[in-house]
Simulated scan of single mutants.
Amino acid sequence: IHTAEDLSYDMLKDPKIIFCQYIDITNEFTEFTVDLYYDRSGRLKCAVPRERLEVRTGEVSKGATRRNGLYTLLIDKMSHLEGARGCITAQFFCKGSTVYGIEINPRFGGGFPLTYAAGGNYPGWLIREYLYGEKIPFFDEWENNLIMLRYDAKVLVHEK
């Protein structure tokens, strides 16, 4: 939907439909997925932005960790989220100082292995915090500019 005229009466009256601003991301915005770790008090303990360099059918096939302005903004503006626990995955479109948050999910995203490889040991922190009662310190020593490539591989099994 690009204009108000594209909205039907049924769409406008449906309470389940949420509307947001249309953002034309064609070659203008950089897309990021950020893995955020929140402790049991809703305090941010780690944030690792991953630039989505290549995407195939909605899944990132090439990504890189980035310590940039988005990282600084998140540390400042999202240091506490009431009710947030564990891994939260959020997506952003960025262009200069313009940042659009487009999605937030209470789960590990598909590109989380890059965050883990960069040093964001969220599963270990969950175990330490919830099974051993440890306090998790703020962690920002993750590896910047680490690139991950994903690919599909064929596996053949000869059944007897």
Rank of each mutant, 00 (worst) to 15 (best):
25 I>G: 12
25 I>F: 07
26 T>H: 15
26 T>Y: 13
27 N>A: 13
27 N>F: 04
27 N>R: 12
28 E>P: 01
30 T>F: 05
31 E>W: 08
32 F>K: 11
32 F>V: 09
34 V>F: 08
35 D>R: 03
35 D>Q: 10
35 D>C: 07
36 L>S: 12
37 Y>I: 03
39 D>F: 03
42 G>H: 06
42 G>T: 07
42 G>D: 07
45 K>F: 01
47 A>S: 12
48 V>S: 04
48 V>D: 05
49 P>G: 11
51 E>Q: 13
51 E>G: 04
53 L>I: 14
54 E>C: 03
56 R>S: 10
56 R>D: 09
59 E>H: 05
59 E>F: 09
61 S>D: 01
61 S>M: 11
62 K>D: 00
63 G>A: 14
64 A>G: 01
65 T>C: 06
65 T>N: 06
66 R>W: 04
67 R>H: 13
67 R>T: 03
70 L>W: 04
71 Y>E: 10
72 T>F: 00
72 T>C: 00
73 L>H: 15
75 I>E: 13
76 D>K: 15
78 M>S: 10
79 S>C: 07
79 S>E: 06
80 H>C: 02
81 L>K: 05
82 E>Q: 15
82 E>D: 15
84 A>M: 03
85 R>G: 00
86 G>A: 08
86 G>C: 06
87 C>L: 10
87 C>Y: 02
87 C>S: 14
89 T>I: 04
89 T>P: 05
90 A>K: 04
91 Q>K: 11
93 F>M: 14
